[in-house]
């Protein structure tokens, strides 16, 4: 009865049989990277990867897909888009959804990691981040600030700045490149 951390890991148990599941296992880390870029939290990305696995494992064993990697990414993209549609309303509901879902499917704990602490950056680090952003060329800085700090989408940022969505993406990307050069640890 000692304090124990038992984690369900259904992935390991029945992976080898299905080529789709086998490919998923090979691609899992990259899928998590994709989800994390998209949903802004490593924990949520893990949840989505888990949900994707369940979707794949539940598929009836049919004719083998020509390109399992393409099929997996297609399902992953759809999963992501389905989630995003409800996102504006999702913040409050999200915890419940994840909890109910994960508890139901895995019968185990819901979150694997300590939560992201909003205050996690020290004063000094915040200062570094601010100085780096303030030093960006004006358009880059504006696009980056509107998108990353004010939470506008690429399209909304484009609207506010009166430029195309492609240009917004270029500005944000250039900003992120410059910032990683200065700040990545």
């Amino acid at each position: 009865m000692a304090v124990a951390d038992r984690r369900a890991n259904p992935i390991v148990t029945d992976g080898d049989a299905d080529p789709l599941v086998r490919t998923y296992l090979e691609k899992r880390a990259n899928l998590v990277r994709f989800f994390a870029a998209r949903c802004g939290s490593p924990a949520a990305a893990e949840d989505l990867a888990q949900e994707l696995y369940l979707k794949l494992a539940a598929r009836p064993a049919g004719p083998e897909a020509d390109n399992p990697t393409a099929l997996i990414y297609r399902i992953a993209l759809n999963l992501m888009l389905d989630r995003a549609r409800g996102d504006a309303r999702a913040a409050a509901r999200d915890a419940d959804w994840r909890a109910a879902h994960r508890t139901a499917v895995a019968g185990e704990e819901v979150a694997e990691d300590a939560p992201a602490d909003e205050a996690v950056a020290s004063r000094q680090r915040l200062r570094q981040l601010v100085v780096a952003v303030a030093g960006l060329p004006p358009q880059m800085k504006r696009a980056f600030t509107l998108h990353k700090l004010d939470g506008l989408s690429h399209a909304e940022t484009a609207q506010v700045m009166g430029i195309s969505v492609k240009s917004v993406e270029k500005h944000i990307s250039a900003a992120l490149k410059a910032l990683t050069g200065r700040l990545a640890r």
Binding site: M1, A2, V3, A4, D5, R6, G40, S41, A43, A44, A88, A91, A92, D94, A95, R98, A99, T103, G107, E108, E109, V110, A111, D113, A114, P115, A116, D117, E118, V120, D150, G151, L152, S153, E156
Partner: peptide, 27 residues
């Protein structure tokens, strides 16, 4: 749009099953 689009703080949910104990350290 802005208020709704801000990344909202996402609650982390922790649950234990029957008979399960768990320790965690927050950030």
């Amino acid at each position: 749009v802005v208020p709704a689009m801000r990344p909202a703080a996402r609650p982390a949910v922790y649950a234990t099953a029957t008979g399960e104990h768990r320790s965690l350290t927050l950030a």
